[in-house]
Amino acid sequence: MVDFWQIIQNAGVELISPTTAAYALAALGLAIHFGFTGLVNFGQAGFMAIGAYGYGISTLTFHFPVWGAVLVGIGASIVFALILGVPTLRLRADYLSIVTIAAAEILRLIFTTNTLEAVTGSADGLSGYKGGFADLNPIPDGTYGFGPWTMNAYDLWLRIVAWTIVIIACLLAWQLMRSPWGRVVKGIREDEDAVRALGKNVYFYKMQSLILGGVFGTIAGMIFILPRAIVPANYATTLTFFIYTILLLGGAATILGPVVGSIIFWVLLSAVSGFVARAQAAGWFDLIGMSSVQAGQTRFILVGIVLMLLVIFRPQGIFGNKKELAFVK
């Protein structure tokens, strides 16, 4: 029979998992780009990859301490944002989308190529970089929490750090968006020529926004690799599309939307794929001849359909302003 209690428990784990936090932070970065500034960045996966590899390579190849590795990652993402932004931020929005998606893919191919295997680990990726972060853990060994949220000291440490970062990032973004800086950026989203005519250096603001959201993505990339290994295949375009789904689920021009979007996304995804897998094993889908491999693939089909339905029927997301909806084109 299908064990619903187990499905709910597994879904509950996702509620506070570091992966959920990482996606929330990456989506918040994208909210700054897309929701607030109107920059169609399709390369958020690239920023995350820079965080992951920046941290991994600095730790493994150069033996940097944790703070050094984090700074390298952030520095690299600023350089990446500059390289993306300089040629494209003066162009029409669709050019940025194509260049960012291309740049993210270039990064992935560079991280995957055999030529650089000694540093990047090629298709196998990297592991064994977590020591420094674990050493910083002040929490004594033991078992903490209850129910689905039972965890060891490292997992607890990781969750505390991950969600603290998410909260700080939210506060930062919230303060920025209610300041005159946020006003300029939102103005650029509406019509950059108008803002230019008011004497604002639009190019420069777009660059700042690209860097800020990119750095959020990069830090998200670092949180993302702490519970797992670095595998280049994780940073394909699909990652960016998942983050868009999360962003639109919560509301593109909101601060809490990306966080709540990420939680809903992961809890639902876990519940749905858990259900499909177990139901398939229990023979519920034998009529349509679904195999266990196929059961695993349904989640992607569902994400795609949800993304479409969201944009069509609730473009402002769960947290978006109803009043705005009347005017959303």
Partner: peptide
């Protein structure tokens, strides 16, 4: 429905995901 171009582009992304994994399925 008057859906804007960028939302339409995102719809096409959703369609792409759904179709691609449907093919794999």
């Amino acid at each position: 429905k008057g859906v804007g171009l960028i939302p339409m582009m995102i719809v096409s992304i959703g369609l792409s995901l759904a179709l691609r994994y449907l093919y794999q399925y």
